[in-house]
């Protein structure tokens, strides 16, 4: 009965995110404003059901629901929405929902593809205080990088309008270059320490669970690659001023690596890293 409840909540949330995405995309092609608001309301409504789904699974499983691909992807998109709402209400960026909601929806949709059973019995390794801290840090970090990637796409589009001197299309609706660049930077400065802390807690936890800090597991390797990329992004920005277009491209590259580390490593490479 309870399993059905969480699946129902998930399906409703997924549908609402889909509608929000469609509305957001329509906003791109419309001359009138207003669809953006509808997209945000739909996303917020979906978020409520989504939170319900996560809560039900938490109660049922007795732990944060991130122990399989279905739960992990769902939690990923849930974290992204938290950041999305924060930025939407803080900065009121034009077309933000049109560029972020599709990413949220795709991640949520990928979650729908995976088996949805709840792991009621965790391996002893996961029954640790570090587990909760590690996953929340890691997922929020990934969500920040995903947002930065979306914002990077917006920046590149707007930059192309300004450089090409054809100020039609989305030029009027997209935020200014400076704002997009600043938010991109803020998101990376948020994601980077989160990822760093997630890796530190992961290493400590690994030691307490398996007695070794680092095992060169693909998941660990790809986390390290992700960390190095964003370290490079920040380094280049602060020393030689790689901002604007270059920073936007790097944040998109970083986002692709994050997605690969998230899905690819588990699906293609063999990892012992139980989800998370």
């Amino acid at each position: 009965m309870q399993i059905e409840t969480n699946i129902l909540l998930f399906e409703i949330a997924l549908t609402l995110y889909f509608l929000s995405t469609i509305t957001g995309v329509i906003e791109i092609f419309r001359s009138k404003k207003g669809a953006s608001k509808a997209a945000i309301y739909l996303a917020a409504l979906g978020f409520i059901f989504h939170t319900g789904n996560i809560f039900v699974r938490y109660v049922q499983g007795g732990h944060i629901p991130v122990t399989n691909m279905h739960e992990a992807a769902s939690f990923f998109s849930w974290c992204m929405l938290i950041l999305f709402f924060f930025h939407e209400f803080r900065y009121r960026l034009g077309l933000l929902s049109s560029f972020i909601m599709p990413i949220v929806f795709l991640i949520m949709f990928s979650s729908a593809i995976f088996p949805r059973e709840i792991n009621e019995f965790l391996s002893p390794a996961l029954q640790s205080y570090w587990f909760g801290v590690h996953v929340i840090l890691a997922f929020l970090g990934d969500a920040a990088f995903a947002m930065a990637g979306g914002i990077g796409v917006m920046y590149l589009l707007q930059e192309r309008y300004v450089k090409s001197k054809h100020l039609g299309g989305l030029f009027q609706k997209l935020p200014s270059l400076q704002v997009l660049d600043e938010i991109n930077y803020h998101l990376i400065t948020l994601g980077f320490p989160l990822l760093t802390l997630a890796m530190i807690t992961g290493v400590i936890w690994a030691n307490s669970a398996w007695g070794t800090y680092w095992r060169w597991d693909p998941k660990e390797v790809w986390s390290l690659i992700t960390w190095l990329i964003y370290a490079l992004v920040l380094h280049l920005r602060l020393t030689v001023g790689w901002r604007g277009k270059k920073a936007a491209i790097l944040s998109i590259v970083g986002f692709i690596v994050v997605i690969f580390a998230f899905f690819g490593v588990t699906l293609i490479l063999k990892t012992k890293h139980v989800f998370p």
Partner: peptide, 25 residues
């Protein structure tokens, strides 16, 4: 509000300001 008749600067100096705002906010 329902049409774009008032949108987009139609003289050069306003267009420059509008552009500057899309670069610097």
């Amino acid at each position: 509000t329902e049409t774009g008749i008032g949108k987009g600067a139609v003289n050069i100096s306003f267009a420059a300001v509008e552009l500057a705002k899309k670069i610097f906010e």
